[in-house]
């Protein structure tokens, strides 16, 4: 299945108007996302780099559709 792109890093973003604090991102990529204990909203912890395979799974799992690719990593 690997097409060689599995190691590619992408930059993630959270739309804070859509996020419902479902916590799937924090579970799947705790180094990249954190749900704020006060606001209940997820945020990307800098620099927000994630491998493409995990990122695609997360896009599917995020319950509110709040997560997207910000831009390809440099």
């Amino acid at each position: 299945m690997s097409d060689g792109a599995a190691d590619e890093q992408v930059v993630m973003a959270v739309d804070d108007t859509r996020c419902i604090g479902g916590g799937q991102c924090e579970l799947l990529a705790p180094d990249v996302f954190e749900v704020d204990d006060d606001t209940g909203i997820a945020a990307v912890t800098a620099p927000g780099l994630l491998d493409r395979v995990t990122a695609l799974e997360l896009l599917d799992r995020c319950p509110s559709g709040a997560i997207s690719f910000a831009q390809p990593a440099p």
Binding site: C19, I20, G21, G22, G23, E26, L27, P30, V35, D36, D37, D38, T39, G40, I41
Partner: peptide, 11 residues
């Protein structure tokens, strides 16, 4: 949902 979500995150 956000009011209660933080109490139910995996962490």
């Amino acid at each position: 949902r956000r009011l209660v979500a933080r109490a139910f995150t995996p962490k």
